Computed example of a mutant assay.
Amino acid sequence: MAVRDGEHPGFPWRQLMGVGLGVLRLPPAQFWQMTPRELRAALEGAGCIKPAPDRPDRGTLVALMMRYPDGEGANHGG
């Protein structure tokens, strides 16, 4: 696949620009100033994508690490 118009193969710039500028009706400057997290929140809020699943809190993560240890000598920063 040839790279054109500054696009990186595999990254959907054209689709993101279409949704950001067309569906969300963001001015170009505002679209390009958004962080990925802000863009994702805007897309979720507009119903364009499903919300990301919640991440486990620290207590749940520690409980899972204790229940399913990696093995001897594993360092989990705890």
Rank of each mutant, 00 (worst) to 15 (best):
M1E: 10
A2K: 07
A2C: 05
V3Q: 09
V3F: 02
V3A: 15
R4L: 10
R4A: 12
D5R: 12
D5F: 13
G6S: 05
E7P: 00
H8I: 14
P9G: 07
P9N: 07
G10R: 15
W13L: 10
R14E: 14
R14N: 11
L16G: 02
L16C: 06
M17A: 15
G18L: 08
G18R: 12
L21E: 08
R25Y: 00
R25T: 06
L26N: 09
P27H: 14
A29Y: 03
Q30Y: 02
F31I: 04
W32F: 15
Q33D: 15
E38M: 08
E38A: 14
R40K: 09
R40Y: 06
L43G: 02
L43D: 03
E44L: 07
G47K: 10
C48L: 09
C48D: 01
C48E: 14
K50E: 13
P51A: 06
D54P: 12
R55F: 08
P56F: 00
P56N: 01
D57C: 11
D57A: 03
G59E: 14
T60W: 08
L61E: 13
L61M: 14
V62I: 15
L64A: 12
L64T: 03
L64W: 12
P69Y: 04
P69T: 03
P69D: 01
G71D: 07
E72Q: 11
G73W: 03
G73Q: 03
A74F: 06
H76I: 04
H76Q: 04
G78E: 13
